[in-house]
């Protein structure tokens, strides 16, 4: 069976500035992958390429096919993205936002059908956002907005879910909620999840595989224990830390303490 995502020798530049340099990795179906790296390491660019926003010359396959061979609508039925902070200047209700995820399923001239409404409702139920379906997006808190965006992504019925720093503007409680939701989606529905992350502890706790980027190349790829060592963190982030391992657990847990 084809891997969900296959990246081989991917390079990308903005003008003359090289952002990604011969990146290669594969993501199996149903996997959960976290991408780490300091600002400017190429995380966001990588996600934009995977979602089709940027079109490099080659090197990316989704579900066995070259990404360039997918039409936009087809691609959006395969792969959905949850952005960081939505910049929406017009008043839409949460339900309307979620229903936009169905656009690639129903025709351009049509109003939503019963199936569309069902899927939207189910997605909102799953993300615990049904309660404020008819409230305007700008009236919601950061965490609630994030759940609405995740519901919209789920309404696309994708096989792959990409997230760009999903916890960036959330408070602690909501951060945990989001990651637990992701874990549930991954386990119960087999959704392939790739997320760009900045919080090392949460990354280690929730993601069984991590890819650490440094200046556009993959520095480490593997389980958290292998990727997040004191040495690698110092080399990539330039900070000194102390990594504590919790022994004898099924999932290796790390806790990272920052040293002055």
């Amino acid at each position: 069976m084809n891997p969900a995502i296959e990246v081989s020798e991917l390079s990308f530049s903005y003008g003359r500035r090289a952002v990604l340099d011969r990146v290669s990795f594969a993501v199996e179906r149903g996997a959960m992958l976290g991408i780490l790296g300091p600002n400017g390491s190429g995380k966001t660019t990588l996600l934009k390429i995977l979602s089709g926003v940027l079109r490099p010359a080659g090197g990316v396959n989704l579900a066995g096919k070259k990404i360039a061979s997918y039409g936009r609508r087809e691609l959006s039925r395969l792969c959905a993205v949850v952005q960081q902070e939505p910049q929406i200047h017009f008043p839409y209700t949460a339900a309307e936002i979620v229903l936009m995820g169905r656009a690639s399923h129903h025709g351009a001239l049509a109003l939503e059908g019963r199936k569309d409404l069902e899927v939207a409702r189910a997605s909102m139920a799953l993300t615990d956002s049904l309660a404020f379906a008819d409230r305007y997006l700008h009236e919601l808190s950061g965490g609630e907005k994030q759940r609405v965006l995740i519901a919209r992504a789920l309404a696309q019925e994708p096989q792959i879910l990409l997230l760009d720093e999903p916890s960036a503007f959330l408070d602690l409680k909501h951060q945990l909620q989001v990651f637990e939701l992701l874990r549930r989606l991954n386990r119960e529905r087999g959704l392939t999840i790739v997320a760009a992350l900045h919080d090392l502890n949460l990354a280690a706790f929730f993601f069984p595989r991590l890819v650490l980027l440094r200046e556009g190349t993959i520095y480490r790829d593997g389980a958290p224990i292998q990727v997040l060592t004191e040495q690698t963190i110092e080399e990539v982030y330039g900070i000194r830390v102390r990594v504590d391992l919790t022994p004898a657990n099924r999932e290796a847990q790390l806790s990272i303490r920052f040293l002055p």
């Binding site: 979602s51 089709g52 926003v53 936009r72 691609l75 959006s76 792969c79 952005q83 995820g101 656009a103």
Partner: peptide
Amino acid sequence: EAALQLGV
């Protein structure tokens, strides 16, 4: 970006 990702 969102519009591109939603199929436009």
